[in-house]
Simulated assay, not measured.
Amino acid sequence: MNKLDVTEAIILLKKEKDLTWEAIAEYIGMSPVWTTSACLGMNSCSEDVASKLIEFIGLPSEAKAVLMAYPTKEWDKSIPQDPLIYRLYEVVGVYGETLKEVIQEKFGDGIMSAIDFTMDVDKEENPKGDRVILTLNGKFLPYKSW
């Protein structure tokens, strides 16, 4: 099995068993965002988490090594066609320079880590239409001079 095989198996079994990412995450003791990312092949699981995932979803035992393997984090460089993903590209396209300026004004010259990082997705009910709340929480990493 490879990452794609395991991801496809997870999606199929998730649908067959009418599971949610939230339920899977709760069972394995991880956040829903991280769990989803790992199931889609973009993060590696510890041995304990991989074992729990296999047990809960019903994956074959050979999926364990694949779930524990370090991923190559790559994606298609073209602009995505899926409207939700495209909107996130749009946010970065419109506000990327603004975020860079504001972050650097507050912290100095550096970046936000995507390694020492958490992300949450929440829902805010609103009479004018429900709101999506994305919280990106990354450690600030200053650039070094030498």
Rank of each mutant, 00 (worst) to 15 (best):
E74R: 13
K64P: 00
P142H: 04
L88E: 05
E101A: 10
A23K: 08
L53A: 04
W146E: 14
L99C: 11
F107V: 07
V33E: 04
S113D: 09
Y143G: 03
I133A: 02
T7E: 09
E125L: 13
M112F: 06
I10K: 00
F56K: 02
M1R: 03
I133W: 08
S61Q: 14
I133V: 14
G129P: 02
K139V: 06
L40Y: 03
Y86M: 12
E124D: 14
K144W: 07
E105W: 15
K14D: 02
V121H: 09
G110S: 02
M30E: 07
P60M: 03
K77S: 10
L134C: 10
T135M: 05
L19F: 08
S145L: 15
R131Q: 14
P32C: 05
T118G: 10
D109I: 11
F117Q: 02
G93K: 01
N43E: 15
A114V: 13
T35V: 04
I10D: 01
V92T: 10
G110W: 02
V33N: 03
T72E: 15
P71F: 04
I111P: 00
G108D: 04
E90H: 06
A69Q: 05
R131C: 13
V33L: 05
F117N: 02
L99H: 11
L136A: 05
P71C: 07
I28M: 07
G41L: 02
I115F: 09
D18E: 15
G41Y: 00
I115S: 08
G93A: 02
V121A: 10
V102P: 03
S31R: 01
R87P: 01
S31T: 09
I85K: 15
D116E: 13
L12R: 15
G129N: 07
T118Y: 06
K64A: 09
L13T: 01
L12F: 10
L141D: 05
K3W: 05
D116L: 15
D76C: 08
A38R: 00
A50Q: 00
G29Y: 04
A114D: 12
E105S: 12
K123P: 00
K14W: 06
D76R: 08
T98I: 09
S44M: 06
S113L: 09
I28R: 02
I54H: 02
R131I: 15
I115D: 12
M68K: 02
L136K: 04
A50V: 01
K106S: 11
S78D: 13
S31M: 03
V92D: 09
D18K: 15
E105H: 13
E16A: 06
I111N: 05
E125N: 13
N137C: 13
C45N: 03
F107Q: 11
V91A: 13
P80R: 03
E55H: 04
E125T: 11
L141E: 12
I79H: 04
I54G: 00
E26S: 08
Q81N: 14
T36D: 06
E105A: 15
I115M: 12
L12C: 07
T36I: 08
S31K: 02
G108M: 07
L12K: 12
Y86V: 03
A38Y: 00
K14F: 12
Y95N: 14
A38F: 00
M1N: 07
